[in-house]
């Protein structure tokens, strides 16, 4: 069981308190009706399925109950960084280069 740093609680908490929420930074379109079917398909279904550093959503469901974002290495299962919902993906964590 891994430990995950909750950016709201500001402490490392055990994995069993968390739930996974899929890829991060996929905002719901403000006006879905303006989207073509294929654009809507992209929003609904198409995910990067990254091998390596992946920005994803987690929820501290049995803690502060907040959704937040994390960059996790899908190969090693290591969390590089966690950050609050609404914050941009930290610039130093890149998809290919790891933490700079």
């Amino acid at each position: 069981m891994i430990l995950i740093h909750c950016p709201y609680c500001e402490e490392d908490r055990p994995e069993v308190e968390f739930t996974y929420g899929g890829e991060a930074h996929i905002a719901r379109p403000l006006d879905p009706s303006a989207l073509t079917d294929s654009e809507w398909e992209g929003y609904l279904y198409i995910r990067s399925n990254t091998r390596g550093l992946h920005a994803e959503r987690w929820r501290h469901a049995h803690g502060c109950a907040r959704f937040f974002n994390a960059v996790r290495d899908t190969v090693s299962d290591r969390f590089e960084v966690t950050y609050k919902t609404g914050e941009a993906r930290p610039a130093k964590i890149t998809q290919t280069g790891g933490a700079a």
Binding site: T19, G21, A27, R28, R57, R59, A61, A65, R66, F67, T85
Partner: peptide, 10 residues
């Protein structure tokens, strides 16, 4: 959980 998701993140 679904409602919290929309509320918190969207």
């Amino acid at each position: 959980g679904m409602m919290e998701d929309y509320l918190q993140t969207e």
